[in-house]
Design a binder for these strands. Structure first.
Length: 482
RNA sequence: GUCCCCGUCGUCUAGCCUGGCCUAGGACAUCGCCCUUUCACGGCGGUAACACGGGUUCAAAUCCCGUCGGGGACGCCA
């Protein structure tokens, strides 16, 4: 039975790299009718936050993929200690009584190869037992084979055969001096206990995997199949981080900006994986059908967002925007309308589903993000048009007098004609001819009068949705500005 | 510092394993044209890449070596 797991640690929001890891795991499981396990890796009590748990679930729920089983690592400590003890009893681990932080080599100062604390690895078991019994605190370290020329190896489904000399692996910790398991131990212990068959995760774990293989084997378990994913990096090639790159790395930012979850998933899939047949716009089902570990590449992928970020339009990767627009265009009017409505409501436009449904076809080809509805369709919903420059009313190669003439005649025509596409089309074209103007010269002043701007959906459909009353009032107001 | 991974258009990628079909294909972005009542959609076309240097071979983006460049891991964080 195929079983995969996604194991985020609740020390921050769900970021795009993690989201992709989750998606790949999900796709792989669904493709092979396997099981998706969600496991919160929360053994670092000091850094876990409820806000982070909330953010992760928010992001995951928005993705709407779901999972089959759910666990919290902090509730499984007995298992972790049991496995640590088993490894210790086999002589594959030893107590390290060196006080924590004795070396004071924090993250920044790591430029020397540390393998183990002298004196501790060789400590006789009797002395070790004595000191432990006396209450002295210790960390439990794995006794990595040293000086034996031994090699640790595993086959990665993406990166191929991986081999490392055991002499290059440090004696990593299994248990901290407070008795809590480290990530390496807890992760492997749970993977064993939960019968995880495939570990699909970021490439930043590739060199940790040797340690994990050692733990699996030390615990008497067969290591699962590993598949490491190329990293998602910023345009400058650096690792994505909230500090440096801001909200663009958080999944909820995409949700709030009006991405469709299926488009976001589609976009992420194309980063580091390819169906190899030039397809790009794909549904969840198509992705599931096409997904395989063979399609994953090895080089990091840059997510091409703009560093400082001005408008959402400029912030996001252009391809993500394009894909989102593609997915929006692929939605039915009903579906899109239903997704647009909450966006309008959130922005305090108290509109009805009927009105939204009428407007949706006019903007479907014109928005890239759901949020764009606010700027693309606002004039349909406001009582009073925001102020605009009256000069906008003046048509191409025309003047204020022409604009006035168009609006005056337009008002007369629109007071009579039936507010449907074809009659509007005929009546306004006839009026243009009558005034000796080009159609565009006729339409533009009316468009600006009713929309408050030059760029808008096609005129006749717009008028039809707006209705006669609003149209005439707005033309009236435009005339008074000239 | 030690160990590991990676390197095709600006970006995402196909091709690499199983050398010749590659005068390197697609997509986004960009530029131009067409469609057109504005915008958008759509259609057509252009610019643009095998990191570099050596081999091997009749033939290399594809195989080998080296250089350079980028990234990752090295914590009683995950």
């Amino acid at each position: 039975m195929l079983r995969v797991r996604f194991a985020p640690s609740p020390t921050g929001f769900l970021h795009v790299g993690s989201a992709r890891t989750f998606i790949f795991n999900w796709l792989y499981a669904r493709h092979n009718r396997g099981t998706v396990v969600l496991r919160l890796d929360d053994t670092d009590v000091d850094r876990n936050t409820d806000a982070s748990v909330t953010s992760i679930f928010d992001g995951l729920r928005w993705l709407d993929l779901g999972w089959d089983e759910e666990y919290k690592q902090s509730e499984r400590l007995a298992l972790h200690r049991q496995i640590a003890d088993a490894i210790f009893q086999k002589g594959l681990a030893y107590r390290d009584f060196t006080p924590a932080h004795a070396g004071e080599t924090e993250k920044s100062g790591v430029n020397q190869t540390w393998l183990f604390n002298p004196g501790m690895r060789e400590l006789p078991r009797t002395e070790s037992d004595l000191r432990a019994a006396a209450g002295e605190s210790f960390a439990l370290r794995f006794r990595v084979p040293r000086g034996t020329g031994e090699q640790v190896r595993f086959a990665d489904a993406v990166y191929g055969e991986q081999i490392k000399s055991a002499d290059d692996i440090e004696d990593f910790a299994l248990l901290r001096s407070d008795g809590m398991p480290t990530y390496h131990l807890a992760s492997c212990a749970d993977d064993i206990d939960l019968h995880i068959s495939h570990i699909i995760r970021g490439q930043d774990h590739l060199s940790n995997t040797y340690k994990h293989v050692l733990i699996f084997e030390g615990a008497g378990a067969k290591p699962p199949q590993f598949a490491h994913l190329p990293l998602l990096v910023a345009p400058d090639g650096s690792k994505l981080s909230k500090r440096r790159h801001g909200p663009v790395v958080s999944v909820t930012t995409y949700r709030d900006a009006g991405f469709l979850p299926e488009a976001f998933i589609n976009f992420l899939c194309l980063l580091g994986w390819s169906p190899k047949d030039d397809r790009e716009n794909m549904t969840r089902q198509e992705l599931t059908d096409a997904f395989s570990l063979e399609g994953i590449h090895r080089a990091n992928a840059v997510i091409n967002f703009k560093e400082p970020a001005a408008t959402p339009e400029e912030t996001f990767d252009p391809k993500a925007l394009w894909l989102n627009a593609e997915h929006i265009r692929g939605l039915s009017i009903e579906d899109l309308s239903a997704r647009l409505l909450p966006v309008m409501h959130a922005a305090a436009f108290p509109i009805t589903p009927e009105k939204m449904h009428a407007v949706t076809p006019l903007i479907r080809e014109r928005i890239k993000l759901l949020r764009d509805v606010l700027s693309a369709a606002d004039f349909f919903f406001v009582d009073q048009l925001p102020p605009y420059d009256p000069a906008e009313l003046i048509p191409q190669k025309g003047d204020a007098a022409m604009a006035l003439k168009v609006l005056t005649r337009g008002r007369e025509v629109l007071a009579q004609v039936e507010f449907k596409h074809d009659p509007l089309d005929q009546a306004l074209r006839a009026a243009a001819q009558e005034l000796g103007l080009k159609a565009g010269q006729m339409f533009q002043p009316i468009r600006v009068a009713v929309c408050g701007r030059k760029t808008a959906p096609p005129l006749f459909e717009t008028l039809q949705v707006l209705g006669r009353e609003t149209t005439l009032v707005r033309i009236e107001q435009a005339v008074s500005k000239l």
